[in-house]
Design a protein around this nucleic acid. Sequence first.
DNA 1: TATTGTTATACTCTATAACTATA
DNA 2: TATAGTTATAGAGTATAACAATA
Lengths: 166, 166
Amino acid sequence: MIPPSIGSPACLPQELVSSPVFLLGRLGFEIKRRAIEELEAAGSSMYHYSVLALLGEGACSAQAAIADVLKLDRSQLVGLLDELEQHGFIERRRDPSDRRRHTVSLTAEGRDQLGRLRALVRRIEDDFLAPLDQQSREALYGLLLQVARHHDARFSRPAEQAAAVG
Amino acid sequence: MIPPSIGSPACLPQELVSSPVFLLGRLGFEIKRRAIEELEAAGSSMYHYSVLALLGEGACSAQAAIADVLKLDRSQLVGLLDELEQHGFIERRRDPSDRRRHTVSLTAEGRDQLGRLRALVRRIEDDFLAPLDQQSREALYGLLLQVARHHDARFSRPAEQAAAVG
DNA sequence: TATTGTTATACTCTATAACTATA
DNA sequence: TATAGTTATAGAGTATAACAATA
């Protein structure tokens, strides 16, 4: 009783499937969704991971700087740092030279947590890129990085321009 | 007076930059943001474009089917179709064989609008992928499609498996 | 007056749940 | 009773604005 033109179509419109933009948007959304889901199940979040990763490289410490690099709102960062501090992963201390500022630093436990989250994210990544072999993954990464650098200078590595990928 | 360890760091943590997942998430978000922004400035939206593109290929007509393919909520689709109908881009008619259903179809004006939006999206795409030459774009597209197909069967083309990319 | 971190508020999406009319 | 479309409601997430302490 179902006419062929009605009913659930088999696939997405070819016009959208053939668009790199549409594909990129969908995949970006999906990988983000997965990461959020799995990190939340582990009692953490992508935001936590980003902040810990940043502090792990010792790049910056003032809250405003952290917010700028990660493109977060300062007021949003406050809540994140509260949570990380409650778990004992970071410390906030007043900067003696400018008492308005808070110096944020990673604790030993924070470093451990960073290691756990890093492993988890690597696994998520590995699952997501499952259909690609190592060579294809590197090719994909290289192409994405070219595009990212073109739009956002912060993706450029200042010194080690020719370092290995993974 | 600014100590070197404070202040705004030059770039993102290497750990995040070297992660395909992070990169994919960022780029997907950014391209989506641009598309939303530019289509909105043109009085339309990515949702409108998706619906028109789907109808343009004549694949389906019942609202529930449209919602399923585009992964939209049925209640969300109602508002979108309202807008498209107000602009005269689509028509809703009751299906005589099942008066609960609405048969949605593209008008001549809708087809014109689809053409305009298609051109706009192509331009956005072209700008976004500017740093890549044609060969790199095709390589990127191929890799993204492999991943997309692995996670969502609707990205598979039923017949023309070996068709051209762009 | 300007800036840092903070708190409070408003707004936009989206997801869920109820409602109607048909089957 | 179940389903298609619709409407109404609630929640999460995010952006904006006000605030207190310090420069």
